[in-house]
Write a protein that binds this DNA or RNA. Sequence first.
DNA 1: CATGAATGAGGATTCATTCAT
DNA 2: TATGAATGAATCCTCATTCAT
Lengths: 192, 192, 192, 192
Amino acid sequence: MAKLQKSIDKRNALVNATIKLVNSNGFHETAMSKIAKMANVSPATIYLYFENKQDLVNQTYLEVKTKYTDFVFKNYNEKSSVTNGFEIIWRRIAEFTLNECDYTMFLNQCNNTPIIDEASRMEGIKHLQPLLDLWIRGKEEGTIKSYSDYMLYAYSINPLSFLMIAQKQYNFQLGEKEINEAFQAAWNSIKI
Amino acid sequence: MAKLQKSIDKRNALVNATIKLVNSNGFHETAMSKIAKMANVSPATIYLYFENKQDLVNQTYLEVKTKYTDFVFKNYNEKSSVTNGFEIIWRRIAEFTLNECDYTMFLNQCNNTPIIDEASRMEGIKHLQPLLDLWIRGKEEGTIKSYSDYMLYAYSINPLSFLMIAQKQYNFQLGEKEINEAFQAAWNSIKI
Amino acid sequence: MAKLQKSIDKRNALVNATIKLVNSNGFHETAMSKIAKMANVSPATIYLYFENKQDLVNQTYLEVKTKYTDFVFKNYNEKSSVTNGFEIIWRRIAEFTLNECDYTMFLNQCNNTPIIDEASRMEGIKHLQPLLDLWIRGKEEGTIKSYSDYMLYAYSINPLSFLMIAQKQYNFQLGEKEINEAFQAAWNSIKI
Amino acid sequence: MAKLQKSIDKRNALVNATIKLVNSNGFHETAMSKIAKMANVSPATIYLYFENKQDLVNQTYLEVKTKYTDFVFKNYNEKSSVTNGFEIIWRRIAEFTLNECDYTMFLNQCNNTPIIDEASRMEGIKHLQPLLDLWIRGKEEGTIKSYSDYMLYAYSINPLSFLMIAQKQYNFQLGEKEINEAFQAAWNSIKI
DNA sequence: CATGAATGAGGATTCATTCAT
DNA sequence: TATGAATGAATCCTCATTCAT
C-alpha cells in the first residue's frame, strides 16, 4: 500500500515564498499565483497545504514566531543570575533579529498591520515567558526597574527591530561595537 | 496649473478617511470606493485631488508626518540646554504619539510595510532635524552618548510607538506615572 | 445636476441572456462572462445590477413568474362561472406555456432543481391565487372534484409544461386540435 | 477489454452517491471529490469505472431509468384487458414514483435540464413500450381517447412526478385516498 | 467641479482529471 | 485495482480607474 506523502519540503517552500514576497510587496499585493510560482508548485497545490490565503499567512506567522522563540531560549538556563540571564537572552534576540532579517521583517509587518487574525496574534509578548519570568525575579531582587512588562520590552527589546530596519534601509551598519552600544542602552534603560 | 478652487475640506475628508480605513483594514483592503463613501464624495472625485491611490497614500503620509513634526517642534527653542531641550521635545513626541493614535498607527504602518513609495519615505528620521541637532550638541558637550542617530532614536524615541500600540491592543494603560517611567528609561539609555 | 441612470435596458438584456443561457446550458455551466457577453456589457457591470450570480437568477425567476401570472390573469373576471372561468384561465396558461417556451423552460428548470433560493421558490402555487379561488367555488357548487389544490394543479395545469417540452424536443406538434384535446383531458380529470 | 474484476459494490456506491448529491445540490455543484468521499473511494477510482463526469451521470441516468422500467412492468401481463392493464401499470408507476423519491427526483432533474447527453435522453418515453402498446389497443377498441402518446402520458402519468415533489416540498400528504383520486383523475382524462 | 455608471485587468479559489506509486 | 497528490483551466467577483453628462 503505497501512499504519497504531502511533502514537507513543499510546505516549507510555500512558507518561505510567503515570507519573502510579503516582505517585499505586502500581504495584499502578494498573489497566491506568485507564491506558487516561487515555490515551484501550481496555485491549486497551495490549497492542499493551507485552507486559504489567510490561513497560509497565519501559519507562516506562527511558524516564524516559533522559530524566533526556539532560537532565543535554546540553551537558556533559568539558573543564571538576572544580570547574566538578561544579557544572554538579549544577545540571542539581537542575533536573531539582526541576522534573520526576513523573519524579523515579516514579524514586524504582521505585528503592525491587520494582516493576521486577531486570534493568531493575541498572545502579545507571552511567547517570551522565560524573559518575563526573569524580569519578575529582577524586580524582586531589585536589579530591574519595577516597570510593566510592556515598558521593559519597549525599551530593552523592541528597539532591535528598528535597528535592523535602519540597517537594511539606510546607511547604517551594525557591527560588534554598535551591538555592544545597543546592549548598554537597553540595559541602562531598565536596570536600577 | 488649475486654480485651487478645489475644496480643502473635501481633500481633508479624503485624507482622514484614508487614515482611518488604512488603519483598520490595511492599504490593499481599503477600496477607493470606500474612502470615497466615508468622505461623502464620488469615487471619481478622488481623482480630482489625487493622481491615483498610491499618490493619495503618499500625500497622506507626508501630511501626517508634517503634522507630527509641526506639533513636536512648535514652541521648541534651540537655546535650551541639551537636557531640558531633550525633555521638552520628548514630551511633545510622547504627547503626539500617545494621543493621536490614528496618526501614529498610520505612520507605523507606513514605516513597517511597503505601502509607501520609497521616495516618500526616504528621508528616514531627517524630519526630526532639530532633535538631531540637539543630539550633536549633546555629544559635543558630553551629555549624550556618542551613538549613531539611529541608535539614539531607536532607544529614546521609537519605543513610544510600541507603547501606544500596546495600550491600544492589550490591557496596558499609560498614565502620568508610566509616561514618567518611559522618559526615565529613554533618558537613561542615551545619557552619559 | 446630471445623473446617469442605471439603464433598464441593460438590466433586461441581462435577464434575457440569463434565461437563454440557463435554458441551453444549465445554471452552473452558465458563466457570468457569457451572460455579460450576450448582453453586451462587461462582466463587472452585472454587479451593478445584481448582487451576485444567485441574486441574478433569483430575480430572473421572480420576474418571469410575474410575467407569467400577469399574462394569465390579465382580463380575467372573477364574475365568470366556474366552467367558463376555468376555460378562460386554462387557455391563457396554455398560450403562455406553449408560446413563451423560453420562459416556461426556465421556470421548469428552476422548479425542478436546487438553483433557486428556497425563499424565492417557497410560494409554491400561491401565485395562481385567482385560480385557486375559482377551484374553491367549483368545489362548493359541486362542479369540481374536492381534491387538494396540488392534485387539481397536477392534472389540469402541470401537463402543459410536459407538452411544451415534448413539442420542443420530440417530433410532436401542438395545433388547435391538440390544444382542444389537452383542454378536454384537463377538464375531464377534475370536473365532477 | 478488461475483465470485470472491478467491484460492482463500488460502482453501485458511486451511482448512489451521484443520485443523492445531484438531487440535493444539482449536477454542477456536485464535485467528483464529494461523490468519491460519499462512496468511500478515492477520486481517481471513479475513473476506473467511468470515463468522466458526464459518463457517470449518463450511466446513472440510464441505470435509474432501467430500474424504473423493470419495476413498472415486472409481473405485467400483456393479456390483461386495457382497463385492468392500465390500472395495474399505473399503480406500479405510482408506487415507484412516490416511494423511490431519490430515483424520481433524479429522473426529473435529468429530464428538465441539460445535464444529460442528448443521446442518453433521446428515447423519450419509448422505455414505456408495453404501456404504449396498451394504449394502441385501447384506442383500437375504443376505450382510450385517440390522443398522441405524449398527450396520454402528459395527463395520465406525468402528474405523478409533480405530486411527489409537492409532497416532498410542501405540506401535502399522499395517502391511500389521494392515490385513488389521482388514479381517477388520470383515467378520466384519457378514457373515452 | 462633481458625479454615478461602466469597465478591463487581475486575484482567490475550485474542480475534473491525471500521475506516480 | 486503488490511491492521494498534483495541477491547469476556468469561474466568480473586486477594484482602481475612466467616461459621459
